[in-house]
């Protein structure tokens, strides 16, 4: 089962790369540097998804006190932090040649940094409390509170003036992107989602083994 998931993920990632570099055209305004988007946007999607899962698993843990939900939240938060970091790094690398700066404190970049640091704090909190059950409870509360940042990050470009451009994909009306670019993005969305599932299942297993070893 895991083999299958791993294989599908790998195939998806390869297909994503082929779409990003082979099929999708050179974007007219930005040139080839736009291809970073096929990495940047799916990464932030995985981050949203991961923190959404943290939210749900945290609620489930608080209601049922099931350790498996706690481990899922922990694993998902870790993967989410990984992909948030990747989003910020790739965005910065793209920003230097296109915007002319690695970084600026606009609402999108500020809110995504807050998101990143909050979940980093979440992971740290898990290690800080000695009593495991109490730690899990605190983490669950933080996992729910921190989720309020997700819409803040996403809509920051609409609610405030920013350097970062607004979303293209969910724009109503005539498409802001040619179909082929949308297709390349969607393939990468799928591949990254598989990668997320693969990472989280493996991390959850490892966390389970760790708990067993401690018991």
């Amino acid at each position: 089962m895991r083999r299958l998931l791993g294989g599908a993920t790998l195939a998806g990632l390869v297909a994503g790369l082929v779409m990003a570099f082979g099929i999708a055209p050179r974007e007219a305004t930005q040139g080839n540097v736009q291809r970073i988007m096929y990495l940047h946007v799916p990464s932030v999607w995985v981050a949203y998804l991961a923190f959404g899962v943290v939210l749900v698993a945290s609620v489930v843990y608080l209601v049922r006190r099931d350790d498996r939900a706690d481990r899922l939240a922990h694993a998902s938060a870790e993967v989410g932090v990984l992909f948030t970091g990747l989003t910020i790094a790739t965005g910065s690398i793209w920003g230097k040649p296109t915007w002319g700066t690695w970084w600026t404190w606009d609402a999108r970049l500020t809110s995504v940094s807050i998101l990143f640091v909050m979940y980093l704090g979440y992971l740290l909190l898990r290690g800080m409390v000695e009593d495991r059950e109490r730690g899990a409870r605190f983490a669950a509360v933080l996992g729910i509170v921190a989720a309020f940042n997700i819409p803040l990050v996403h809509f920051s470009v609409i609610w405030w003036r920013t350097l970062h451009q607004p979303p293209s994909l969910m724009k109503p009306g005539p498409g802001a992107m040619p179909g082929i670019i949308v297709a390349a993005l969607l393939v990468n969305f799928a591949a990254f989602t598989l990668l997320y599932v693969y990472f989280v299942t493996r991390r959850t297993v490892v966390l389970g083994l760790e708990a067993e070893a401690e018991a």
């Binding site: 007219a28 915007w99 802001a176």
Partner: peptide, 16 residues
């Protein structure tokens, strides 16, 4: 002292 280009959310294929 610093110029930053603001990108629109429009993406275009070369022939478009």
């Amino acid at each position: 002292t610093l110029i930053m280009a603001k990108h629109s959310e429009e993406y275009k294929a070369p022939h478009d």
